[in-house]
């Protein structure tokens, strides 16, 4: 009799312990979730938007915070810009003429070979219409790809806020690709590609930027080897919250992480079921009834565990007995 009680106790302890362990694990998960942000020096170096191997890009010209030493003669370049036929790239007709614009037609057309910007900030940077990458003998194909950007494309990816309409595109090596970037939101978005060869693309970058609803187009020639390039919008937290994609050239290279629907996130949030109100809760006849059922539900869980303990205990008795008798036998 005493032996049986002991077995029950043991079994009970096992159950309790198991429960405690599960809780402990949850806690550890929580603790893990609180990242230590103190070691930023390290993360700055580790930071890599794409998972690509990027060597040092020279951003001296792109960084807009500092006074750049070289004052370019823009007046002269404005003239040059006029016959360059870049205006086809920026479609002014699509812009909705809101009352916000006051008919000031002072246009800035900045032309720096690979940097075109109009008075609304529509921008084409790093365009390449004719320079063949060294790994290409000729252009393999000429393709036009339309990319749409907007909040509504995030709808099919729960937990994101912004997205492109597609998350990856495939082209052949040495393809000449013309991108038609359609921003369907009323804010700025970017189509920014990284990791391109720097002898052709300043900073290794191709960049379209436009405040919607409006379209901007630009052309690049992709390198001759299989590779995968990051495409994203660099406005604060647009990439983090879904506006991320990849261009796969040929068979592609390494996948880029955290592209909605394509690749998994490097760092995942933890989700718990919420105690959300349900219509079925309302169907309960009255509050007292609900209390009783909740009570029985909770107790049933406890009694259930106890019953399992009893069962384990019962199974264990013969084993324990066998061990005890075995010893005596010896």
């Amino acid at each position: 009799m005493a032996k049986t009680t002991l077995t029950f106790l043991l079994a009970g302890m096992l159950v309790v312990n198991g429960h405690a362990m599960a809780q402990e694990q949850d806690k550890q998960k929580d603790a893990h979730d609180h990242h230590d942000h103190s070691g930023h020096a390290a993360t700055q170096n580790e930071h890599d938007h794409s998972g690509h191997d990027m060597d040092k890009h020279d951003h001296s010209g792109h960084s807009m915070s500092q006074q750049s030493g070289s004052a370019v003669d823009h007046a002269a370049e404005h003239g040059a810009a006029a016959d360059h036929g870049h205006d086809h790239s920026i479609d002014h007709s699509q812009h909705d003429t809101q009352a916000t614009e006051h008919g000031d037609l002072h246009h800035h057309h900045h032309m720096d070979h690979d940097h075109i910007m109009d008075h609304e900030g529509t921008m084409i940077m790093g365009q390449n219409l004719d320079k063949l990458p060294s790994s290409c003998k000729s252009i393999s194909e000429e393709v036009e790809i339309t990319v749409r950007a907007g909040r509504k494309y995030a709808a099919k990816f729960p937990g994101t806020a912004f997205a492109f309409d597609q998350q990856q595109w495939h082209v052949k090596p040495c393809a000449k690709v013309t991108w038609h970037f359609i921003n369907e939101d009323d804010i700025r978005h970017q189509f920014m590609m990284h990791g391109l060869p720097k002898y052709l693309y300043k900073y290794g970058m191709f960049h379209l930027e436009v405040t919607g609803p409006k379209t901007v187009s630009g052309t690049i020639i992709v390198p001759g080897s299989d590779d995968t390039f990051l495409v994203h919008c660099d406005i604060s937290h647009h990439m983090e919250k879904g506006m991320k994609a990849q261009l796969v050239v040929g068979k592609g290279g390494d996948d880029i992480p955290s592209i909605p629907g394509v690749t998994s996130y490097n760092i995942n949030d933890t989700y718990q079921a919420e105690n959300l109100p349900k219509a079925s809760d309302k169907a309960e006849p009255n509050a007292v009834m609900r209390q009783i059922t909740t009570f029985t539900n909770n107790n049933f869980r406890n009694y259930g565990m106890m019953a399992i303990g009893v069962l384990i205990g019962l199974i264990c008795i013969p084993i324990l007995r066998a061990i005890a008798f075995g010893r005596k036998g010896n």
């Binding site: 103190s38 930023h40 700055q44 930071h47 890599d48 938007h49 604060s236 996130y265 760092i267």
Partner: peptide, 29 residues
């Protein structure tokens, strides 16, 4: 006068690396 304002997050979480982006220090660290 037309003034255009955007809304930007500073020091928010990234799903790509264990750090925050874009960083803005109000005091050292």
């Amino acid at each position: 006068i037309i003034i255009k304002l955007e809304i930007m997050e500073l020091n928010g979480k990234s799903p790509d690396f264990p750090g925050i982006i874009p960083t803005f220090d109000i005091a050292p660290g």
